[in-house]
Amino acid sequence: MVQGIANWNTEETQEWLQQYVDDWVTFYRKNTDDGELASYIPELQKADPNALGIVIRGNNGMTLRSGDTGEQFTLQSISKAITFIVACMERGVSYMLNNVDVEPTGEAFNSIMHLEMKQVKKPLNPFNNAGAITVTSTLPGTTSDERLEPVFQLLENMFGHRLKLNHAVYESERKSSTRNRAIGYYLLEVGFLESDLDVTLETYFKQCSIDVTIDDLARIGQVLANDGMDPKNGEEIVPRQIARITKVLMLTCGMYNASGKFATYVGIPAKSGVSGGILAAVPPRVRDDTMPFIDGCGIGVYGPALGEEGNSVAGIRLLRHIATQWDLSIF
């Protein structure tokens, strides 16, 4: 069942689709041995490296859950997509795109080299650390808690409950933040930051330390897949233009310097984090054949064993298989 390409004869009942996903999670769990836990944030070393789980929330009302779906973990770099959305909503799209570009870097997410060597006039995209810190500096408020409030409010609008900050991870990030502080000082020197460096970094560390589950990630993905609207009631949660720009950035820049390979072999907008989470948005598709989740879906994946680019090894392989079997690619 695990091998093969697009399966045009897949049963579409929830029972059958659940069996497929359960089988695939079991198959790809062994791939966790090919990765390692993030080491530069000590608190993330406490995760179970063998964990793997997935949630798929369809616009048709169907939800599939398999594997380690109850694990809580922190957003880490997935928060960059959320804060970019919030900043665009608070400051305007044109304003934000004047402060941060939309181009892939081809470098590691925490690179400083490309900033100096390319002499850029603004960070190349909001999903590497330099761009994300710049975006965080534009959030309104004088304290980190004030700046994070619209982030929490947006997430609460999606979930119906308020998320919490993981203080242990926040302290671990704050104490081991040498590289991000170096990036911050460079951004300050060249005039990219709009506000106090210490408050900006405190906000950035906190946004990365918000606890979520893969159910939460799937819900975010579902809203983005639906161009910012809640598929249950048609309410606009994120303006359509902002949702679409965010999906473009997720596709071109969301998987660090493996974004090109992910777009080629999986073909859906996604954003990863070094805690092992992956947020994916599958827009509605036009196909001659009926396929699972053809009306679109959001996907949340958790697998904390990472590859060298900082993405979940088993999570990417699981997503690639599902995208191939069910023809989820946007292309």
Rank of each mutant, 00 (worst) to 15 (best):
Y204W: 07
R181L: 06
V274T: 12
P150M: 09
E43Y: 05
C88S: 10
P123W: 12
L217G: 11
K175E: 12
V151T: 14
T83F: 01
Y40P: 01
L249G: 04
K121Y: 00
P239V: 06
A243L: 06
F27R: 12
L165I: 14
V151W: 11
P150C: 12
V223D: 06
R320V: 00
Q3T: 13
M1K: 13
I299P: 00
L155S: 12
E116G: 04
C208F: 04
Q19E: 15
T324M: 11
I237M: 07
W16Q: 12
G221R: 07
P126N: 12
N60T: 09
E43Q: 15
E103Q: 15
K164P: 00
P292E: 10
L163H: 11
F27D: 06
T246I: 04
M117C: 03
L148F: 09
I237Q: 05
G160T: 05
N226E: 04
K46M: 04
M89W: 00
P284K: 12
L319I: 05
E235N: 14
V55N: 13
L124Y: 13
G160V: 07
Y40G: 06
D101E: 14
T200N: 06
T252N: 13
G67N: 09
S259M: 06
T134Y: 04
G315F: 03
S66I: 04
P239H: 06
G4R: 03
K46Q: 14
G315A: 04
N60Y: 01
G35A: 10
F262H: 10
L318F: 04
P239F: 04
D230N: 15
I294E: 11
F192D: 05
Y265V: 08
Q14T: 15
D216G: 03
N9K: 14
G58T: 08
M1Q: 09
L37N: 09
T136L: 04
R181G: 00
T264M: 13
A270E: 08
P304F: 05
P123K: 12
